[in-house]
Design a protein around this nucleic acid. Structure first.
Length: 927
RNA sequence: GCCCAGGUGGCGGAAUUGGUAGACGCGCUGGUCUCAAACACCAGUGGGGUUAAACCCGUGCCGGUUCGAGCCCGGCCCUGGGUACCA
């Protein structure tokens, strides 16, 4: 009987479905293990061979854990809201829900063919009202809570109101967007509207006028992580800064906890580093500068308060609110022109000329609070409105940006720090500023002579004492803008009364997405929901017109999988207590600053409310590498329809043309298929080498336009899902990027056939012996059991596949068909190649699924070796090997080596200076 | 610019973490089987050198530590990814 993979795979996929093999439930008799894949956005293009890489890895791990006795939660679902379906709807009028449904169906078919062990009864879709019910619900909770900095957690708005009523807000330490202080009496005197307006400054989900990334092409705002290089990540459209009233989530309140949490989780250092940079904690001081002839103060944030004596000017962001007040009449026009110019530039233009130094003096002077010196105030676009206070004190001697600015505008530079043993020099002669924190203060009054680090703490103490400022920690992490002026997203459970937002009662959820006639903004520029009929509460209050962004639905999906059908709560206490958190999360590194920050924030919030038992949602996280495409090229001779083979191309003037990799096998072009590929090649002529047309190749991104996309369905048809699974793993380390080259797949396919043949005799009949395996056979299988277990636990699946190949090669050599050996082999292979494993398992006479068996243990007794092969080297160069008993002492080994005639030969009658014996491994003789 | 990975045969990649570099697979060469092909099997395959061997060279480059370095240290070059005026 041949290895008929198509029949076998079909049979077992049906069996699994029929028997609900992968359906799991809470089972308190077993330890839980939660393995999660980042759920996909179901795009219209379907899966290519790169997508399932991480899914295969997590599936192997899940199956392994199950064999090890764990109750494994391994779910899958869809991040079903998103721009492409909506863009398609705009073009064609087809409802995005329909597009999404079609795409999901296709994804599901493709996924099913690969043989994953997902419990599909737990599937979630973010666009399903039963699912987004809980996305909306979480939003309501955020609206109803604020972040108490003292307790470092979310607390209810009612408790905050109680404090306001009792003592106003002077003692409240909360993450909020106002610095207005009020008393209890004031609070009580306010109208409901005024109170609501004040509370919006405290809520974790709040509505506020903010500087946003506006993308007019998409007609919506974007989050920081959705913008790259000044254009939208999806689509590549230009993005400009704009002030708009938007919903935001106060993610920044959790900055410190998001940072601290990183130390408690098992993620790669590089990913943690990306998050640390994104959170961007910096310690320093907030210092108030006076303004000459004005009672205003300008608050600046600096990480180098030690350099206060070196501040020679100040710079405000062009958007800074004090600019218009402080600018003197004679500079007014220039300043306004400059501001106008800055506003007109897109983010991208700004980034294109970061090195261009621009700015304007505003005519006013700030007063250095510590020296009393008057220093000019400038505006410049190198100071960002969004960071710190949007104003800086410039210390050109010790900050490279200030230095460049001072040089350009010929502003004074004063040195206040010298390197350890150096003397002060004239900054006018400097090529660059001295930014390092190594050194000693000079020209610095109070802190003169101090080391930088002591100077910092000493000056902070001083300014706090004199009430000139205070020590402060700043974060780069911004609040997340949560409104999108789009249709295909979760509606906000929000309505407006007197222009102020109120949330719906929880009993009214889900607030379902209404139907609209066109998926475009309204004529008067309202978001698409402005077209919906009766989009208002029963009382006639209008609903919010924006929808939520992509990260809303993906922020708590891992919790929903624990209890996906629960329509009373997001997740039951019981389910959460059992499944707790994700033990292993596998996904792409592109979510480092978006999803992985937002969902950690979301989870921490739910944790504060006592709704989930873990502060961090993802215990261990692995980023699978990208599968790159391997493109093939043909070479057309200029102005002809003749193609010349790769190695002959240098004799001609040729154009390199991408050719579909599916027409090429081992870099040899299938000429007939090529001719049929496109009409223009129908009459093509070829100059061959060795009767073949050899194509060139290059590693590029896998994409349609490079004609290098390989579809898993095609591979499965030709070689089967088990071969695909093994080959994806065999390609290289999981976390590395590597090119996909279908050529190599034949090796793993051969391996599976060779494995199959172990079970059959020359006539093709099943032939399994019940004899006891001999020591050689035992050694082979037990060393493989050990290796596979070790490899799986460190996610080294590529070396596992090699180990299986070596094992089968050895067993073939030994002509081993012993039941015990083959059973063990089938079991350890089953996480990798589940279909063939099920088939072989049943051929071995078992009547239950291999997934219900136990992972075999390694019996070390079979691995003990009687002899060891020693490499004998002279001055580090290995000259010969020698087999010696494994238990031989070092001295005896040395003696044996020294009497060997080959040693005598290599010594050339010299006396060895030293002999090093590493037991069981090597002997090195130093001559 | 800064941060993080990483540079090993024609290719994808191994190397027990300082102990025989190139496992395993692809490709290639030769052979067996076949009318032929496919499949399968056997042998070879880092470079130089030799009839064959001996031997020499070899993990991006230069230097160091060590009995011994792909692995550790210092400096440099290159590739990929992230990030970008964050005070």
């Amino acid at each position: 009987m041949d290895y008929n993979f198509s029949a076998i795979e079909k049979k077992w996929q049906e069996y699994w479905q029929k028997n609900k093999t992968y359906k799991i439930d809470i089972d308190t008799n077993k330890p839980k293990f939660y393995v999660l894949d980042m759920f996909p956005y179901p795009s219209g293009a379907g899966l290519h061979v790169g997508h399932p890489l991480g899914y295969i890895a997590s599936d192997i791990y899940s199956r392994y854990k199950r064999l090890k006795g764990f109750n494994v939660l391994h779910p899958m679902g869809y991040d079903a809201y998103g721009l492409p379906a909506e863009q398609y709807a705009i073009q064609t009028g087809q409802h995005p829900a329909i597009t999404t449904d079609i795409n999901i169906k296709r994804y599901r078919e493709q996924l099913d063919k690969i043989g994953f062990s997902y419990d599909w009864d737990r599937e979630v879709r973010t666009s399903d009202p039963k699912y987004y019910h809980w996305t909306q619900w979480a939003f309501i909770q955020m609206f109803k809570h604020y972040f108490n900095k003292q307790s470092q957690k979310a607390e209810s708005i009612e408790s905050l109101v109680a404090v306001f009523e009792k003592e106003g807000n002077q003692n409240v330490q909360a993450a909020c967007s106002t610095d207005q202080i009020f008393s209890a009496d004031q609070w009580k005197s306010w109208s409901q509207n005024q109170q609501q307006e004040m509370l919006l400054n405290y809520r974790l989900a709040f509505l506020a006028e903010t500087q946003v990334n506006w993308c007019s092409e998409l007609g919506t705002v974007l989050a920081n992580d959705e913008v790259k290089d000044g254009v939208s990540v999806r689509g590549g459209y230009p993005v400009v800064q704009k002030k708009m009233k938007q919903w935001s989530l106060r993610v920044s309140a959790y900055a410190q906890r998001l940072l601290d949490g990183l130390d408690t989780i098992d993620w790669t250092d590089s990913l943690k580093e990306v998050q640390r940079n994104w959170i961007g904690r910096s310690e320093g001081a907030s210092v108030n500068f006076g303004v000459k002839g004005n009672d205003k103060t300008i608050e600046v944030f600096t990480t180098r308060p030690d350099t206060l004596y070196g501040a020679t000017f100040m710079v405000l962001a062009p958007e800074h609110e004090l600019v218009s007040e402080l600018v003197t009449p004679e500079y007014k026009e220039k300043v306004e022109n400059y501001i106008h110019w800055v506003k007109g530039r897109t983010e991208r233009e700004r980034m294109a000329d970061v090195n261009k130094i621009t700015g304007e003096f505003i005519g006013a002077y700030g007063i250095n609070p510590i020296t009393g010196n008057e220093i000019p105030i400038w505006i410049a676009d190198y100071v960002l409105a969004g960071y710190g206070t949007g104003a800086i004190m410039a210390v050109p001697a010790h900050d490279s940006r200030d230095f460049a600015f001072a040089k350009h505008f010929k502003l004074p530079i004063i040195q206040v720090v010298v390197k350890a043993d150096d003397k002060a020099t004239d900054p006018a002669s400097w090529e660059e500023s001295y930014d390092s924190k190594e050194g000693r203060m000079i020209n610095s009054g109070l802190i003169d002579g101090l080391e930088v680090k002591t100077a910092i703490s000493s000056i902070i103490n001083y300014i706090e004492e004199k009430k000139l400022g205070y020590g402060k920690i700043n974060f780069r992490l911004r609040d997340a803008i949560f409104s999108r002026q789009r249709y295909w997203g979760e509606p906000f459970p929000v309505y407006y009364k007197n222009d102020l937002p109120y949330v719906l009662d929880e009993s009214e959820l889900p607030l379902e997405l209404p139907e609209i006639d066109k998926y475009l903004p309204t004529e008067d520029g309202q978001p698409p929901l402005g077209r919906a009929q009766n989009w208002e509460t029963a009382e006639g209050y209008p609903y919010e017109l924006s929808t939520m962004p992509g990260f809303a639905g993906s922020s708590a999906y891992y919790l929903r999988y624990m209890d996906p059908k629960n329509n009373q709560e997001l997740v039951s206490k019981e389910a959460n207590a059992y499944w707790q958190d994700v033990d292993l999360y596998i996904g792409g590194t592109e979510h480092a600053t978006g999803h992985l920050i937002y969902s950690r924030f979301w989870n921490k919030f739910l944790f504060d409310l006592g709704l989930v038992c873990k502060d961090e949602p993802f215990k261990k996280l692995i980023n699978q590498g990208m599968i790159q495409g391997r493109s093939n090229f043909v070479y057309r001779i200029k102005d002809s329809n003749t193609f010349v083979s790769y190695n002959l191309r240098s004799d001609y003037e040729v154009t390199e043309i991408h050719v579909d990799v599916n027409l090429v096998h081992h870099d040899v072009l299938d000429i007939e298929k090529f001719k049929a590929w496109r009409a223009e090649f129908n009459q093509a002529e070829f100059i061959l080498e060795d009767n073949k047309y050899i194509c060139g190749y290059a590693v590029e991104k896998m994409s349609k336009s490079m004609y290098n996309v390989v579809n898993p369905d095609t591979i499965i048809e030709q070689y089967g899902a088990d071969t695909l699974r093994l080959y994806e793993m065999f390609l290289g380390p999981l976390e590395d990027s590597k090119p996909w080259d279908t050529s190599g797949i034949e090796g793993v396919h051969r391996f599976l056939r060779k494995l199959w043949r172990l079970f059959f005799d020359a006539n093709g009949s099943l032939n399994i012996s019940n004899e006891t395996p001999n020591p050689g056979e035992q050694k082979t299988i037990h060393k493989t059991i050990k290796k596979i277990q070790e490899d799986i636990e460190k996610f080294s699946f590529n070396t596992s596949v090699s180990a299986f190949m070596i094992c089968v090669n050895e067993l073939s050599e030994l002509k081993c068909n012993k039941r015990e050996v083959l059973s063990n082999l089938t079991l350890i292979l089953s996480p990798f190649a589940p279909h063939i494993a099920e088939e072989l398992w049943s051929l071995l006479g078992n009547h239950t699924s291999v997934t219900d068996a136990d992972f075999p243990g390694c019996n070390e007794a079979f691995l003990v070796e009687a002899t060891k092969t020693y490499a004998v080297s002279f001055n580090g160069k290995v000259r010969f090997t020698l087999d010696l008993p494994a238990d031989m002492t070092k001295d005896a080994v040395e003696k044996e080596v020294m009497i060997d005639e080959r040693t005598t030969k290599w010594l050339e009658e010299k006396t060895p200076k030293k002999v090093i014996v590493v037991p069981g491994k090597i002997v090195n003789i130093v001559v």
